[in-house]
Amino acid sequence: MKKKVLLMGASGSGKTSMRSVIFSNNPASLTSRLGATIDVEQNLVRFLGDLVLNLWDCGGQDSFMDSYLSTQRATIFQNVGVLIYVFDVESREMSKDLEYYRDCLEALRKYSPDAVVFLLVHKMDLVRNQKGPILERKTKDLRDNSGDTPITVFGTSIYDESLYKAWSRIVHSLIPNAAVLTKHLKIFAEACSATEVILFERTTFLVIATSHETAAPPTTANGTTTTDLTSEDTGDPHQLDPTRYERTSELIKAFKHSCSRMREEFRSLDMELPDYTAVLDELTKNTYIMVVVHDPTIETAAIKINIRLAREKFEELQSESLP
């Protein structure tokens, strides 16, 4: 199953940079070497099971934008699963950016009325003070420019974990059997006496599902996901850090990159830390699983055996529900 993902926004807003950080495992510091994207760069990213992301990175210079909106209109905006529109938080030409955005949205409504729209207010690291209020103001601005189309806004930066949070939510919205996965992760967590179990996609280390999800899916219509995560953990005796997932993705990606510099392959990770034990290991062909256990009587080796025993079931789950 192919899902077309449009990545759009003004030139220099950071589209290609985020793509190279998330999908090519490049460090953020190297993105300054990227040149402007000419026309559209298409990438196929094999994701879970049969799910393939067809990523269209659309160069943002005016001449390209004009042609997307005119001669290429149908080609670009047809069959879109997700539109990700990137705004540079420090953009000098916000009104022009918004005008292009509104035009794109209009084309999208016509050719792909069911597409899900994510807006990224990017380069948040450049904002020194008052990140919260600035993001709120931008969010309101974007909402006013979106008409009836439901949107989800994230503040992001390639220099911290916020990028992983946004992209995890984005891919989560594309996975058809996320709820089934969550259900099985819960069962597995119980079997391991684990506090939490997290499933990652193998190359991007984006979070696909966790054993912890509450009933409400993270990307509901109109939900502005800026400060929502705090409420998610009510009733949880552990009260784990709400940013843990995206920070885990970021940490592991960074370490994978360190390994690759040594030409060493990253395989798995066992951590016996003062507060908990965590085991990160391959689960299926394209996923990794992390099991977090706070109970000190549970042995690391036992967790590893459980992971091995669960492999087959999860392979099955993936192929089953993705026709």
Binding site: E196, H238, Q239, D241, T248, L251, P274, H294, D295
Partner: peptide
């Protein structure tokens, strides 16, 4: 990485006795 992980999944209820 180990240092950063240390606090990431720290539980407010389970942590204290474990160590």
């Amino acid at each position: 990485m180990l240092n950063s992980f240390g606090s990431l999944y720290k539980s407010s209820s389970a942590s204290s006795n474990r160590q």
